[in-house]
Design a protein around this nucleic acid. Structure first.
Length: 592
RNA sequence: GGCUCCAUAGUUCAAGGGAUAGAACAAGAGUUUCCUAAACUUUAGAUCCAGGUUCGAGUCCUGGUGGAGCUACCA
């Protein structure tokens, strides 16, 4: 039983015996530094049930706790706050329990527990990945890991947008100008090569529009009549008809892109358990529209189009099938969701990592799936995140302000290397080992920078100022981990349990307290789908440790018992950093 | 027009309705005979505006202001 549970019961008992009333919930918070005590109970909420002076109530509850609970050493009351001091022995025995548990805080997936499918990345296959995809990938991957650590089985997936007019544009431009260029012949990453032809198309398209406008056509007409666009549309029709040559080209170019993406994913450290392709799912969902019509979830308009009336839910009417009977985006998403549950019957919920410009879409999608009566529709979550903005505003491919994912990863490693060299770290390491470390550090800086921010908020990214390596950053935390490893190398670490007689210093106690809440932080992060909670927790832990590290001597303490305890405590902190960062997908180096 | 989200030190971020709003960067002042100074210690500096609910509001409600997004038989 956790300390909070023990106290919770005892407080309820105290209120019952002293005032004869029952209270439902008790508000706990950690005691502010300036007051004596470890944990604080807020008395104010109890005033609704017990009438009286909050200070007196605090006094009587506090006295009851001291008398009846072993762990409670003393108490004091400030205004409506009951501060409780916990006996050191509680912390020591708690620490003994966890110090050798390498997976402390991480819950293994329970048998029979319903799985969660987490979708993220989901790129188009006509452009390389950029900074926005990086945020998406990091969030999705991290949330998946956090859910796993909270005891849920997880499938990571993505839906690849591999069909449509945009692909045809790249294909068309390649046919015209490519001269058979391949990633091998050009030395370009496949996604970059294909992306270049997409840009090429756009340039030609613009020229043709200008020419048509010069001939006196309106801009709208020109956009529709540009020959290159008509040709692309024709290609799309051929693709849909299964034209052999078109499909072969489509396959070839998409495979180039996939190879390119794989490299980026690998460098980024993310992975997937299963993949869905839009070319295979875009026809799904129609049968459920028919079913929904029968159920009365949808209705048909005179022109034959099918709609869902969501006005009673405060939304608009939403189309789910075109008049010509073809599927729209919503139809596909309905079909894909259902298909996934068919493919993986143990899945009981899904998380969609998609930018907040699609908030409305997912609100509607979830509502429709609920109306169709699927029980898992209750457990759908749109992990909605804000844009990554540049100081100049939005990233725009046309203006060339897109921050390319591969370039960014390389720059981060280069910056990490530069700083390391300046500081004279890592002398005596081989070039290869250094490069490995620079990657880990650069990636750590980038990932932490993005994940420490609340997903819903926009991120401002200044490529010129780049990302800090000091202060509240990934490298700061990695550095602390590396320093602890250095201590552990030098220490003759005993594995004996710490004597419960030992007296804890303030800094030591606060470290143990900090470790104690790690499992709760994971659960909260899982419930709120927020890696930021883990990031901020880790930072707090590291701050606490650094202060401890600078102010007490670990390897030269005045007794062997104390050295042993401090070394073990350091090890436990390092292990927690490693586990927490693991949930963020950030590696920790043994030395830096 | 309607709807949704955001607004906190000069800057980037924190703060489950709770005590004197926390950090980091930038600015100022210190700390390296000792476990890694990418560190530590320290000074100054903030809740967009106006109401309301509450014992208590950065947090909840209403109305403004400013920013972003959605509001396609596109995906």
């Amino acid at each position: 039983m956790s300390l909070q549970d023990i106290l919770s019961q005892a407080v309820k008992q105290a209120v019952k015996t002293v005032y004869g009333s029952d209270i439902e919930t008790i508000e706990f918070q950690s005691t502010r530094r300036e007051f004596a005590g470890d944990i604080t109970i807020v008395i104010f909420p109890m005033l609704r049930i017990i009438k009286g002076n909050p200070v007196q109530i605090g006094e009587s509850i506090g006295q009851h706790l001291v008398d009846h609970v072993n762990e409670v050493k003393a108490y004091n009351v400030v205004k409506g706050f009951l501060n409780i001091e916990i006996d050191d022995s509680y912390y020591v025995s708690f620490f003994n329990d966890i110090s050798n548990d390498l997976n402390y805080g991480i819950v293994k997936p329970k048998k029979g527990e319903k799985a969660i499918m987490v979708e993220y990345s989901s790129p188009n296959t006509n452009k390389p990945l950029h900074l926005g995809h990086i945020r998406n990938n990091l969030l999705g991957y991290s949330v998946a890991e956090i859910l796993k650590a909270s005891g849920k089985p997880v499938y990571k997936t993505q839906i690849i947008n591999d069909r449509g007019i945009h692909i045809c544009k790249s294909m068309l431009a390649w046919s015209r100008y490519g001269n058979g260029a391949t990633p091998e012949s050009t030395g370009l990453k496949g996604d970059k090569l294909v992306g270049n032809y997409y840009v090429k198309f756009d340039q030609d398209y613009k020229k043709e529009i200008e020419a048509l406008i010069a001939e006196g056509k309106s801009e709208e007409e020109a956009k529709k009549q540009a020959p290159i666009m008509l040709e692309a549309q024709e290609m799309l029709l051929k693709w849909e008809a299964g034209d052999e040559a078109v499909v072969a080209l489509w396959k070839k170019m998409n495979n180039w892109v996939y190879d390119g993406f794989d490299i980026t994913y690998k460098n980024l450290g993310v992975d997937f358990d299963c993949l869905y392709y839009e070319s295979k799912t875009y026809l799904l969902g129609k049968e459920f529209i028919v079913q929904g019509l029968k159920q009365g979830v949808f209705f048909k308009k005179d022109d034959g189009s099918v709609w869902c009336d969501l006005t009673k839910d405060g939304l608009d009417e939403k189309i789910v099938l075109r008049a010509d009977g073809t599927a729209v985006y919503m139809t596909q998403d309905i079909g894909t969701a259902i298909q996934r549950i068919k493919d993986y019957p143990d899945v009981g919920g899904m998380v969609y990592t998609v930018g907040n410009e699609q908030d409305y879409h997912f609100k509607v999608l979830f509502l429709i799936l609920k109306k169709l009566g699927f029980d898992w529709a209750e457990n759908l979550y749109h992990l909605s995140y804000g844009m990554v903005d540049l100081p100049s505003g939005k990233m725009k491919s046309r203006e060339g302000t897109v921050v390319d994912a591969d370039d960014l990863l390389e720059e981060m490693a280069a910056t990490a290397g530069q700083i390391s060299e300046e500081l004279g770290k890592l002398d005596g390491y081989s070039d290869q080992e250094k490069q490995e470390l620079y990657k880990i550090i650069g990636l750590g800086a980038l990932k932490y920078f993005i994940l420490k921010v609340d997903p819903r908020k926009r991120i401002l990214f200044d490529p010129k100022e780049s990302i800090d390596f000091q202060g509240n950053t990934g490298p700061f935390i990695q550095y602390t981990y590396a320093r602890i490893q250095s201590i552990l190398r030098k220490a003759k670490r005993g594995s004996s349990k710490v004597s419960e007689e030992i007296h804890l210093h303030e800094k030591e106690k606060s470290l143990v307290k900090q470790l104690e809440v790690f499992p709760v932080v994971i659960q909260n992060a899982a419930n709120e789908h927020s890696p930021a909670l883990i990031a901020n927790y880790t930072y707090d832990l590291v701050k606490e440790f650094n202060s401890f590290y600078q102010n007490v001597s670990i390897l030269a303490a005045d007794s062997d018992d104390l050295i042993d305890f401090r070394v073990q405590l350091s090890a436990a902190v390092a292990n927690t950093i490693k586990n927490a960062f693991g949930l963020l997908g950030i590696q920790v180096p043994e030395r830096m």
